[in-house]
Simulated scan of single mutants.
Amino acid sequence: MNKQEFINAVNKFDTHTDAETRIAQYFMQHYAVLPFAKIDELCKQIGVGKATLGRFLQRLGFSGFIDFKKEVTEDLTQTLTIPIERYEHQTNNDNPDDIHGLLISHYREVKDNVEKTFDALSEQDFERAIDIMCQPRGKLYVMGSASSEALANYFFLLARYLRKEVIFLKGDISTLPHQLVDVTKEDTLFAISYHRYSSVTVKLVRWFHECGGQIITLTDQPVNPFVPYSDVQFMVESEGKGYFNNRAAGFALIEALIKGLSLQQEKDNRFQRIEGLFEEFSIFKS
């Protein structure tokens, strides 16, 4: 069942309860990532019970949520999220490419994503994330694959100024075990992953959870494979009209996290030592 078939089936209902309306609206808004959903978290997000969701899906002809998820195919979850598909979509669009007004259009896109993200963020979650990242015991691991790797590396470089034992995990599956051999329950993982979720990052988050470590995730969909394992999860908007999604809101949140980390004590010596190393190796030209 694709999204349009789902909409058509719901529209054939003679009546809708308030709960069914909420379910249908939520499904239509997040249809592409429903294959990653866990039923408990999904019901929590919508504000309905599992029995209510089950009855709704039975009205659609499914035995339950697992049966429904089987019908939401992998092709559907990737609709217009792969750059080549975006390219083909825009190539077949009647509107020709036009650079006029592109700069202001992109600015508005960035502004809209950042505003939506920060309006929805929880101050309590943000403060908790900072507390976890500032724990004096344990290491802080950082991971991001594909486009998320740039955000993870940016966070890593600045966080190294602010605390000891920040470790940047490479997404190479053949060397990842060597990087994780010393993980303990006192460690923290900061994982960044956008839809389409990297299978390596998903496995890493799950494994880190099994080790008892604390997990902070940054992603762009409320329904995702990290929900059951995250101690704190941040949702950032990433809508983009070009071939690629927009990562500006993710960068903005990372900079806020760095500012939060900078409030901790005992960073002066690290700054001085890093700057001394820059001079020792003639990194920058004055």
Rank of each mutant, 00 (worst) to 15 (best):
N2D: 03
Q4F: 01
A9T: 05
V10A: 12
K12P: 04
E20C: 01
R22E: 10
I23K: 00
V33W: 02
K44Q: 10
K50R: 03
A51H: 14
L53V: 14
F56R: 05
L57K: 01
R59E: 15
L60P: 01
S63C: 02
S63A: 11
S63P: 02
I66A: 13
K69F: 06
E74R: 09
E74I: 05
E74V: 07
E74M: 07
N92E: 11
N93M: 02
I99D: 08
G101S: 09
N113L: 05
D119T: 13
L121C: 14
F126R: 00
D131R: 01
C134L: 11
R137W: 05
L140Y: 09
V142A: 07
M143N: 08
S145M: 07
S148D: 11
A150W: 10
A152F: 01
N153T: 05
L158K: 10
A159W: 00
K170N: 06
Q179V: 08
T184Q: 14
K185P: 00
T188Q: 01
F190V: 11
F190R: 09
Y194F: 12
T201L: 08
E210H: 12
E210Q: 06
C211T: 14
I215G: 10
V223F: 01
V223A: 06
V223S: 09
D231A: 11
M235F: 08
K241T: 14
Y243Q: 14
F244S: 05
L253E: 02
K259F: 02
G260I: 04
L261M: 14
E266F: 10
R270N: 05
R270L: 09
I283L: 15
S286M: 11
